[in-house]
């Protein structure tokens, strides 16, 4: 597998950056922490915005972090077509920074949810995932605000552009009529990308199911950090 150098951004209040670095190193990649005040991302092959509670998420999730100095650099990096992934709080930050459309609202059940959840791979142009459409993955979710929402036109255009990457589903890959998303997400959306497919945001935590010894008894998350290497090498 191709070794890549990932930059993992640390905002004050990030708390999954160490898990991401562990998962990346476990997969044979190089991974370094990027302090939120750093602005030089040139050395990295890909950027990860990890989960956590940036600035406590006391305001809207991600609304403060998007103004960190590093985010301007992340925007420029993304606009060059280089790969950026935002996981959980990172996804929230990407929507706040308008690098991805829509918003993450509070879970419909008004409770934090931490549990392994089935989701299926949709046909998309996301450069971060290279799995057949309909593949069912089991990945833990862990959030209070993961209820994806956007206006109907945006949803339509995302569908048309192949921007919907992951949808929550039932164990067999089917979707229930009244929704399969544990958090109430619109159209069961768990992860989306931008039109170019280089910027990817998702609520589930693939880094938690990469090293099987970590206890979640799964390695479904590894795919999220391997496909991108082929893309970067080819690009």
């Amino acid at each position: 597998m191709t070794n890549m150098r990932f930059g993992v951004v640390v905002f004050p209040g990030s708390n999954c950056e160490q898990d991401v670095v562990h998962a990346l190193r476990y997969l044979g990649h190089t991974a370094d922490y990027v302090w939120h005040q750093d602005t030089n991302l040139a050395a990295f092959d890909a950027i990860v915005l990890p989960g956590g509670f940036s600035y406590g998420d006391y305001l809207r999730c991600g609304a403060v972090a998007r103004f960190s100095p590093v985010m301007e650099a992340v925007s420029a990096y993304a606009n060059e077509g280089r790969p950026v992934i935002g996981i959980c709080n990172g996804f929230q930050i990407l929507t706040e920074a308008h690098l991805l459309p829509g918003a993450l609202l509070r879970n419909s059940g008004l409770k934090f949810i931490c549990k392994e959840t089935p989701m299926r791979v949709e046909k998309s142009n996301c450069k971060w995932l290279d799995l057949p459409e309909g593949t069912v993955l089991h990945i833990p979710i862990n959030h209070n605000e993961g209820n994806y929402f956007c206006d109907p036109e945006t949803l339509k255009s995302m569908e048309a552009n192949g921007q919907i990457v992951l949808r929550y589903c039932n164990e067999d890959g089917s979707r229930s009529v009244d929704g399969s998303a544990p958090n109430g997400a619109m159209d069961d959306i768990a992860g989306i990308c931008n039109e170019r497919g280089n910027v990817f945001g998702l609520m589930p935590h693939p880094e938690r199911v990469t090293d099987s010894l970590g206890g979640n008894n799964g390695t479904d998350g590894a795919a999220f950090f391997t496909a991108i290497a082929a893309y970067v090498k080819g690009a």
């Binding site: 708390n15 999954c16 160490q18 898990d19 562990h22 998962a23 989960g51 409770k111 934090f112 949810i113 931490c114 549990k115 833990p140 862990n142 935590h205 880094e207 938690r208 090293d211 010894l213 970590g214 206890g215 979640n216």
Partner: peptide, 16 residues
């Protein structure tokens, strides 16, 4: 109860 708690962060929870 425990669904409301992050019980996996740090990647070391072997038995949930």
């Amino acid at each position: 109860i425990y669904r409301q708690y992050d019980h996996q962060v740090m990647n070391n929870t072997v038995v949930l």
